[in-house]
Structures are given as structure tokens and as C-alpha cells.
Design a protein around this nucleic acid. Structure first.
Lengths: 290, 290
DNA sequence: TTGCTCCTCACGTCACGTGAGGTGGC
DNA sequence: TTGCTCCTCACGTCACGTGAGGTGGC
């Protein structure tokens, strides 16, 4: 019989740990003095303690260990539990690896730019959104502003005619994926409620269409606030991040006008806020990269 | 300005999380109604929230994030913190891998034996221990019992003569590492206090020596309780474990007589308890195996 | 008798989840 | 006016670490 201090030395655990295992019923002392409340342990309890510590080392909780210690648990069941644990740990390792990779990517970015990026790219998923929109191909950059404005006016006119009201922010969709200075395919859209779609199904007039912008499972997103003509920085950050994390674009870039409408004359275009969204998909297998 | 519910939807976090970040001062609402205590958030706070979430994703605590969010923190310092985090995560991954491996080894063992091993092997380290001992080479197994007994008697006689008293358990050291049935080199030892060593430095007489049993950094250990002649099972478990976990023996096997003395006639040899200790060292690089 | 060991509360950890109980806002 | 949203406590989580305050044992 050993007092708790000696037993804790033999078992390489703290006294507090032994008291805790007593409290939760994992390892009761062989004998407790009724008058002094001293705990006494036997040599036979040392392998029991070791088994507990070994199972804890495998990542089981004390509660799980209590069940695993049940003597009449068949080997097959223990096998099953260990297999589950194996799968769990494999996922855990994956997650830690991915996390490690995110840290590495961030370090590389700081190294390359010499400063911390002001943009924070996140992954999100979006639901289907009904939009009223007008689309065109812009011949040259010089006509961009005029045409955007014109398309938007068409949409709002159409909405007013239809007695619908915008229910969600304005969106610009860039259907031309690579960088070009000519023949840029853009679409100006306004989110509307589902009701509008039901009321006037698939009606198209005066260049304006009512349709569903599809839901996206994996969407890289970044918020830009500041000057409108510096939005390119946000797009660069978005594309860089996408590439560095092993994704590739998988749809039209979306520019969400969180600040309001581009056609509103009261907007200060040196201080706007918008969200750039890029549908993405995995480029590399999870194992080889993240 | 958005109410907490809307903002939580935009940020993909729970309302409780936003309240928590307010409470710890990580993200205070832009405005709080003095009468209703309602929290109101602005669009500009969305990227702030995203940055917090991204840093959390890298594995930082909320407290650390609060420091990292400090605007006038130079890029170089952020770099340093990220480097530290990288090292930490690399160790974390290593640990998880090792844990995963332990689970796999256990599964393989159950597969091979068809049952759960009754032995729990653990790693421990031991301190230097002063011993009085007698050593000999046993010609054949038949003489083993007699010679062990004889050696032990020599040691105890010597101790009595020296007026020393045993201070620690009896130990049998197996200097012959491989399995043999002839010419087995064994040493019977008894732990004594340091004082004995000082009092009679390096005295050797009647075949008995006083010396230090060296400390061992990494010692695979298993406790056997039951019949003395089934101790072989424990040794097999110890060697199997050692091999499966990428270690190799690195010193004499030690048999600690926790039950008392082998020369004590009152001992029931069908029900003893002892510890088998095997000094070990890594056989493979950490990366390739565990 | 004096340290030494042991005892029982009970709070703290970390980032929220989850009710309980109650009140403004459309 | 009725739901709906929001509010503030406050407990629970997991495996102990860390005092506080007090008492037996050699």
C-alpha cells in the first residue's frame, strides 16, 4: 500500500490527477482511511494507471476511457473504437496540415509584398439569388462607365414598370475572366425577391432579363472599402489568394455594391464599400497541397 | 448600420460570438443604443470580423488576435509571430502523427493476436540508482535458479556485513541480450542508498560490487503480475512494442522485483508483481515513422 | 514538537453554446 | 397587439493547476 504521493511518483502523474481520477471514478484507491481520508494505492493499480495514461495518449477522453476499461468489452469492439479513432486522427492531421499551410501562404505573401495585405480573403457559400439584369459587351474601356450606367438605368426602369422593388444589392458580373481592354462582357444586376420571379416568369423585355443567379458552394470573397478605382487591388488579392491556396476560378467574378447604387449621384466614389466574390474550385488534390 | 442578427448572418458567425467579441473587446459594435442596449454594426466592421476569423483559423487565441490587430504592429513583427506559429503547428502535426501511429500499432497488435494485450508498455526515464550486486555467467538453464539464489545470498551477506540496508527493490540485470539457453550473463542487484556508496567507496569483496546503475533517458517499461514463470510474456510484449514503435534496445534488460525478495521463502511465486525495464533508443528518424 | 504529507473546497482555464427570464421594435 | 429580435445573467464544457485553510503521521 502506497500513499498518494509515492504512487504519484511511481505513476509519473500529479497527485491532483490521482484525486481527479478518484473523483470521476476512473481509478479509485484500493483503500481509504475512514478517519484521515488518506488514499492508499496498491502495486496492482500501477498497470491500471498506465493503461489509463496510454489510452489518454491515444486521444481518448476520461469518459471514453472509463468505457474502454470495462473488462468484458470484446476485442472486436475495441477494434471498432480504435478504427474510429484512427479516422478521426487522420482528419485531425489533415486539418492541422491545412492550417499550417495557411500560415505558410501568409508568410510568403508578406515576404513578397514587404507588408501585410490589407485584404482578408475568406471562403463562403451563397444561396441562389433572383436578379433582374442587363448584359452587354463593352467594346473599349472608354465606353465602360457610360454603358454600365445605361444598363443599370434599363434595369431600374424595367423594375419600376414591373412594380418590383430591389430587395438585394446591385451586382456587376464580369463574364470575361481574363484581363482585357476590349470587348469586355459585363452584366449589371439588381437582386429582387423571389416573388418577382413568380409574378412575371422569365419575362424579358428591353434587354432586361429576370433570372436566378446560381448558388455557389465555395466562393472566395474579399471586401474592398475605399476608392472605386482601386478595386483592382482587391481583385489581385482575391486571385493571388485563390492561386496560393490551390483553387481556380469557377465562374463569373461578382462585384456586390454594398455601398448602394452606382447610379446614385450622392455616392462619393472615393469612399465606397463593396464585396468581390469569385466562385472557385479545388485545383490540386487535398493531400499534395492543403 | 445593422442589428446583430443581420450582421451575424453577413459574417457567418453566431450572435453569441459577436456578443463575446464585444465583451472581450475584440470587436465593439459601432454604436450601442443607450436605452435598449441594442448593438449596431457597420459594413466597415465586416472586414474586421473577417480578419479576426482568419486569424482564428490560423490557430491564434482571441487574446493573441487582439495584439495582432493592433494597427501599428510592423510587418516584421507579424512575420515573427507567424514564424513561431509555423514551428508550433509543425510540432503539433508531428504529435498528431505520432498519436495516429500509436493507434495503428495497437490495431495491428489486436489483429495479430486476436485479443487485446494485457500488457501496457509505457516510456519512462529513471535516475541513477546505487546498487550492490553480484554477477556471473550461468552455464545452463538448469543451474539458473540455484545461481540466482546464491548470488543474492552473497549480496545480502555483504550488505549485512557492511551494516547497510536495502533501500530499493531487488533487480535482476540480463546482460545477455539475445535469447540463449546457455552461458547467460546475469547480475543480481539490490538498491541501496547513496550513503552506502560514500561510506565504502568502490569496495569489492566476495564477488559483490557496489556501483551506480546509470540513469536512463528513455526506458520502455511494463508491469507483469501473476506467475513468475510467465514473465516471458511480458518480455515479448516489451520487445514487440519496442520494435513496432521504431525503437531498439540500448542496454541490459532490468527486472525489478516489486514483490519483494526472490530469496524470501514466504513469497508465492504464482502471484508476484514485477516491472521489466528496457533502455531503448530511436531506430528510425522521426519523420519516416512516428 | 516541528516539518511533511495529506485532506477538502473552490476558483480559473478557453471560446463560446444553451437556456432562463425579461423587454423594445415593426 | 402579437410574434420577432434583442438584452443580461449564469451555468456548463474538459482535465486538471493552483492556492486557501485546516488536520493527521513520523
Amino acid at each position: 500500500m502506497f500513499r498518494i504521493g509515492d504512487f504519484s511518483l511511481m505513476g509519473q502523474v500529479s497527485i491532483r490527477t490521482l484525486r481527479h481520477y478518484d473523483a470521476v471514478g476512473l481509478l479509485k484507491p484500493a483503500y481509504i482511511d475512514r478517519f484521515t481520508d488518506y488514499r492508499y494505492y496498491t502495486l496492482e493499480q500501477l498497470p491500471q494507471l498506465n493503461r489509463i495514461l496510454a489510452l489518454k495518449d491515444l486521444g481518448f477522453s476520461l469518459d471514453q476511457i472509463k468505457h474502454l476499461l470495462d473488462d468484458n468489452l470484446p476485442a472486436s469492439q475495441i477494434q471498432g473504437i480504435l478504427l474510429l479513432k484512427q479516422v478521426e486522427l487522420e482528419q485531425q492531421v489533415q486539418k492541422e496540415q491545412a492550417r499550417l499551410n495557411r500560415v505558410k501562404v501568409r508568410l510568403k505573401m508578406i515576404e513578397q509584398e514587404g507588408k501585410v495585405s490589407p485584404y482578408e480573403v475568406i471562403l463562403k457559400s451563397t444561396n441562389t439569388q433572383t436578379i433582374a439584369s442587363a448584359r452587354t459587351v463593352v467594346p473599349t474601356l472608354a465606353e465602360m462607365i457610360y454603358l454600365r450606367c445605361s444598363l443599370l438605368r434599363d434595369v431600374y426602369t424595367w423594375l419600376a414598370h414591373d412594380k418590383s422593388h430591389p430587395q438585394a444589392p446591385e451586382i456587376t458580373l464580369y463574364h470575361t475572366t481574363e484581363y482585357r481592354e476590349q470587348n469586355i462582357d459585363i452584366e449589371m444586376a439588381v437582386g429582387v425577391s423571389h416573388n418577382s420571379l413568380r409574378a412575371t416568369p422569365s419575362i424579358s423585355s428591353n434587354n432586361v432579363t429576370l433570372r436566378d443567379l446560381p448558388a455557389v458552394q465555395t466562393m472566395a470573397s474579399v471586401i474592398h472599402s475605399g476608392s472605386f478605382h482601386e478595386v483592382g487591388q482587391a481583385i489581385i488579392a482575391l486571385l493571388t489568394w485563390t492561386n496560393a491556396h490551390g483553387y481556380v476560378p469557377d465562374g463569373a467574378l461578382r462585384e456586390i455594391h454594398l455601398f448602394g447604387s452606382e447610379n446614385d449621384d450622392n455616392i462619393d466614389f472615393n469612399n465606397i464599400i463593396l464585396e468581390m466574390q469569385l466562385p472557385v474550385t479545388r485545383y490540386q488534390a487535398l493531400h499534395s497541397f492543403e
